[in-house]
């Protein structure tokens, strides 16, 4: 399916992105927010990752803002902290019926726990709680492993996961067979859980290796922003990053 089919699968106002630790939630959240901005007047992204010390969506602030996405993230010295900071704007954005929001929460049950404190602001009918799955990660390489992590997240968050998305990758070593493996396991997980399989991600350089008609779910083309410094000649690590062209 072509990637403009994704928007049909993402009709809800608030998309909360969850997943196992290191599943690529931040990459997906940042890319989704930029993609969705094409369709929405007001699109914001909320960085609620209170688990990871590096490689968070706040690293992409300038990039997101250049795309017109409003970024809700601690500023000043707290930008660099891994503290459980919940800004007052978070509740405002979540409960404002005029806004579309993507929420990047930290990984595993530990990262999802923060959602409990926001329950009053989350309208479940307007919210999609999306589980991102990378089957190349150690604890989610099987349907059984992924199901266990999903259950732990649901218990910690106090919310049911409502949809799945595949983010199978091996960084620069990703190829068509990696994507196929991710599709396979995520489809099985969808069948077992009864949840919709919304989309799968594909990096641009890998997109050339496959045909959109190979899969019966839409493909979200993504650009990996959280790259190590030796692959980014001009980006200063330790500062907000932004000079990246999508």
């Amino acid at each position: 399916m072509p990637d403009d089919a994704i928007i049909k699968n993402l009709s809800r106002r608030a998309l909360i992105i969850t997943g196992a630790y290191g599943s690529g939630k931040t990459e997906v959240a940042v890319n989704l927010a930029v993609y969705l901005k094409q369709f929405h007047e007001s699109q914001s992204i909320i960085d609620l990752d209170i688990v990871n010390p590096y490689f968070r969506s706040r690293e992409a602030v300038e990039f997101l803002e250049a795309a017109g996405v409003e970024v809700v993230v601690p500023r000043g010295e707290q930008f660099f902290a891994e503290l459980p900071i919940i800004l007052p704007e978070v509740r405002g954005h979540l409960s404002d019926p005029q806004r579309h929001v993507v929420v990047d929460v930290g990984g595993d049950d530990v990262g999802a726990r923060v959602l409990r404190s926001l329950q009053g602001a989350i309208n479940t009918e307007e919210t999609e709680f999306i589980f991102i799955l990378n089957v190349l990660r150690p604890f989610t390489s099987t349907v059984q492993g992924a199901s266990r992590v999903m259950k732990e997240i649901e218990q910690a968050a106090g919310m049911r996961i409502t949809a799945l998305a595949a983010n199978a990758h091996l960084m620069d070593e990703t190829d068509a067979s990696v994507l196929a493996g991710g599709y396979e396991i995520t489809s099985q997980l969808a069948a077992k859980s009864g949840l919709p399989f919304l989309f799968m991600t594909v990096e641009r350089q890998v997109a050339a290796e496959i045909s959109p008609t190979d899969y019966d779910v839409p493909l979200l083309q993504i650009h990996r922003l959280m790259r190590p410094p030796w692959q980014e000649p001009n980006v200063q690590y330790g500062k907000a990053r932004g000079r990246i062209q999508i």
């Binding site: 410094p229 980014e232 000649p233 001009n234 200063q236 690590y237």
Partner: peptide, 12 residues
């Protein structure tokens, strides 16, 4: 220092 990682451009 301080957590600032030099860029390849800076080293160049």
């Amino acid at each position: 220092t301080g957590g600032i990682v030099p860029t390849p451009a800076e080293i160049r």
